[in-house]
Design a protein around this nucleic acid. Structure first.
Length: 490
RNA sequence: GCGAAGUUAGCCCAGCCUGGUUAAGGUACGAGCUUCCCAAGCUCGGGAUCGCGGGUUCAAAUCCCGCACUUCGCACCA
């Protein structure tokens, strides 16, 4: 069994995640639910995101509506651009991406916005036919990956947002005015996005409904190098992947050598890397990959992906795009609102540019699970070596045996801790079995009540990774857990 | 979307070819006994209308048809 399957099995058996609507046969693919264990872990991950990105950098966080009006997506370009041109064979029904097929056969790179008739003309001119059966093609069509919905009794056209950031762009003017905004201003949002994928696969890795954490940094395009806080992290070594080769280089050097275009981008890429270091992902299996022109999203003027290597290949966790003024300009034009702001440094009006970090939460959760998974053959155990601050359960409270008042003592300790910490009481089965159960869902500590506890009010704390125990006063337990569990390791 | 394989308890799976009592086993789970420290042992227990729907038949997990989902390949994709 490969690692992906092992994690999948663990997720299903231990309540991390599982298919949505699974008791019904018509459950659509691409929708997954987080179970009790998974939702705890996801919440802890979100706490870390708030701590290490939002609060650390002083970002503003919003929580926007998931349903948005049609105009939003006219302005954003999604109505026309967020589509794949498709051609279907009349004879065998095979479908192909029109632009890819044309490029492959004729070498013609079609522009993003090629119209249907242009595509049809090229097919006719070049006498293209189905590569499978040689049959002729139908007229090309476009498949839009947004979910269209109808609002109210008149069924007004609206869409589920395909990315959370559109809320940020359209909320920007109010936030900037009311929150005493000043460029550069970072606005963050964590929430659901929806994309009607043609073929969702691999559980959390390609979903139709998924969590994104997006950070949009609004900046003055003339002051992209004026980022004082870059000072403190410019010596950080980044693992860049450019034109199929790795370069380990400090953030400062990357800017000096024009690999990273400016200090602002370098600062936020470094902040992102520092964040992921704290998730427990093996940073030696990550990279910041520079995207080529053909790979970039339609709105990006340059782009890096933060990627992580897993058992099923390199996985994109964060898309880092410089969107220039594409979004604000689009929304300004369609809404006829003036979205310029004043930069008080020189009192000039500027339409802010945007650099974005678009993070996939579900993929991040999966990657953390996979990189934390450890099979300890020596002790015949499987251990999820999650960082304590990401663990769904922080500690199990266990009476060594249930007799002689140990059960009652353990339950008392449990009730004293459970409001402050995600702890778990378990008296079922042998002590070894209970340790194994905790290890499997990543609980970093196990508190065991034994006979000595009754005489001197001490308990043992077992460390998940070392299996070693130390004995402390019950009165010190809360402090210990707080210190050990929330201590950030970098 | 195309092609192939698969779907029986939380999980792994037997049974299907050759239709016929109460669908077997392992593991996990729960209760008890035992034991103060790493998946031990013993006893007992709950849990499946066999993916969904239809058909054939006196009788369907088993034969036939349709659908859904999963995995893999192709095609595609943040």
């Amino acid at each position: 069994m490969n690692t992906y399957d092992t994690i999948m099995k663990l997720a299903l058996e231990r309540g991390f995640y599982f298919p949505s609507c699974e008791i019904y046969g018509d459950a659509p693919a691409g929708f997954w639910d987080y179970g009790p264990t998974g939702v705890n872990m996801k919440n802890r991950f979100v706490e870390l995101w708030r701590r290490e990105l939002v609060r650390r950098d002083g970002m503003l966080e919003i929580d926007g509506s998931q349903i948005m009006s049609k105009s939003i997506f006219i302005a954003s370009g999604h109505i026309t651009n967020f589509t794949d041109p498709m051609i279907i064979c009349k004879q065998c029904g095979s479908t192909f991406r029109a632009d890819k097929h044309i490029a492959e056969i004729t070498g013609h790179e079609l522009p993003e916005l090629a119209s249907g008739s242009e595509i049809d003309n090229i097919i006719v001119e070049n006498k293209l036919s189905c590569p499978k059966c040689g049959g002729p093609f139908e007229k090309s069509t476009r498949f839009n990956m947004m979910f269209k919905i109808g609002i109210g009794p008149s069924n007004d056209e609206a869409y589920l947002r395909p990315e959370t950031c559109q809320s940020i762009f359209v909320d920007f003017p109010r936030i900037f005015k009311t929150m005493r905004g000043r460029l550069p201003l970072a606005i963050a949002q964590l929430g659901k996005s929806f994309r009607n994928e043609i073929a969702p696969r691999q559980s959390l890795l390609r979903l139709r409904e998924f969590y994104q954490a997006e950070i949009e940094i609004f900046c003055n395009p003339n002051r992209l190098d004026e980022v004082p806080k870059f000072e403190e992290m410019k010596k950080k070594v980044l693992r860049l992947y450019i034109n199929d080769s790795y370069q380990e280089i400090t953030a400062q050097d990357a800017v000096d050598q024009l690999i990273i275009p400016n200090n602002l981008v370098a600062y936020y890429l470094t902040l992102l890397v520092l964040f992921y270091e704290k998730t427990g992902i093996d940073m030696n299996r990550t990279r910041l990959r520079q995207l080529s022109t053909s790979e970039k999203a339609f709105y990006a003027s340059f782009a890096f992906d933060f990627e992580v290597e897993t058992s099923i290949g390199w996985l994109e966790l964060v898309a880092c795009n410089y969107r220039s003024d594409y979004d604000l300009r689009g929304h300004s034009t369609v809404s006829k609102q003036n979205l310029h702001v004043i930069d008080p440094i020189d009192n000039t009006k500027v339409l802010p540019n945007v650099f974005e970090l678009s993070m996939g939460i579900d993929r991040s959760i999966y990657s953390i699970l996979e990189h934390s998974f450890f099979e300890d053959f020596e002790h015949e155990r499987t251990v999820l070596r999650l960082r304590p601050y990401l663990a769904p359960i922080l500690a199990g409270i266990l009476p060594l045996i249930t007799k002689d008042g140990l059960r009652e003592k353990a339950q008392l300790i449990y009730s004293q801790l459970k409001l402050d910490f995600p702890v778990f009481y378990d008296e079922s089965g042998s002590i070894g079995r209970r340790y194994r159960r905790l290890e499997e869902i990543g609980a970093p500590f196990a508190v065991t009540v034994d006979r000595q506890t009754l005489s001197d009010d001490t308990v043992t704390i077992r460390n998940r990774d070392t299996m070693l125990q130390l004995r402390i006063q019950i009165s010190e337990l809360s402090n210990y857990l707080h210190k050990e569990a929330y201590k950030l390791v970098s």
